[in-house]
Design a protein around this nucleic acid. Sequence first.
DNA 1: CTCTATAATGGCACTGAGTGTCATATTCTG
DNA 2: CAGAATATGACACTCAGTGCCATTATAGAG
Lengths: 196, 196
Amino acid sequence: MAEMRRDEKRKFVRDAIYAAAIDLFADRGFDETTVEEIAQAAGVSRRSFFRYYASKDDLLAQTAVSYGAALRSAIEGSPRELSPLEVMRATVRAGVEHAAAPEVRTRQVVEIAIRSESARQAYQSRSSSIEDSLASAFAARTKKRSAVDAESRLLAGVTLAVLNATIASWFAGEHKSLPGAASRVLQLLIKTMDGD
Amino acid sequence: MAEMRRDEKRKFVRDAIYAAAIDLFADRGFDETTVEEIAQAAGVSRRSFFRYYASKDDLLAQTAVSYGAALRSAIEGSPRELSPLEVMRATVRAGVEHAAAPEVRTRQVVEIAIRSESARQAYQSRSSSIEDSLASAFAARTKKRSAVDAESRLLAGVTLAVLNATIASWFAGEHKSLPGAASRVLQLLIKTMDGD
DNA sequence: CTCTATAATGGCACTGAGTGTCATATTCTG
DNA sequence: CAGAATATGACACTCAGTGCCATTATAGAG
């Protein structure tokens, strides 16, 4: 730790705080863990904790934010010629891949969110800004003047609804793999919007 | 106030606190308003405020909860023979009617939520439990054993996505009436899920 | 290598949210 | 009217979050 550049050390400490927090949350629960304890487990002062994360909630919110960033990239990276529905498919696929990455600790985070109401709220606290972000990404590739309108907002909302249902279904054990759950949910979506 | 039964007075005080809070939020902003001020404006002590609302956030959360209850009723009250898509339509219609009722103060609440990030979070803090509630209502009318599965979760999520897009579109001025915005968004949804 | 500007840290004090407790007052029930 | 149940206000406490300052460590110029 002594032979590190400033930015390296900063990332190192930030990751250490995050890891310590998730472990404590998973262990004794979100509400039962104080900032003081997280700071201590990560080897920093309580005051310094707030120099890395704006709040205790922010720890979980950041998890959601990186998830949202992955989704946004997928939308932006989609070939121009794809239809909105195809972009949605690609975005759902990207979301599932993100959630499946081990360093994301999806299972642990879902468990923390299920055990504590406030943890779930913390995780979802950025959901509207994430939705806004996806909506503007959809608008940017479809609309001429990139104006966020009802269609882009709808696409963003439905995409997130599909991913939520996918992860819930996977966590509930209805599917063993995330991609499998995703295909199933997408299939349900199209069927429902058809005749019936 | 002296000649009131217990439960009447309780409702009266609760409504007074709510009204005072929304006015203060709309006036000086959500974050700039303290519980002390709300309590004072409503004529109760700070301690008593917490006997009516669990938190400052709870004020806005309750707004969302009654909205969710209206949606749930619509799902439960739908005739058995309706297809999922038709139930969704009926639910969206009910949601729009709820939002249009004057005592709900939809415009004021949307403005408060737009001005303050924490206000928006407070309003949406119950969104996952509302979504759960709608999912179980969908499951109850469709499934044999009322088990919440991927399809009911998807229906709940898409219904809320449609309503979010509807209210945003209406607030942005794309439509003068809420029902008009709702039809448009539903039309977009079906078109998108078709070929393209 | 040294000196200096900059950034990171810890400690302290403060505001505000939220909770437990108790003594008092008001309302309901018989 | 008397006793039980409930509502209230006051006080004290924990914890989240923030501003401020003194100290230490690092980066980069000379």
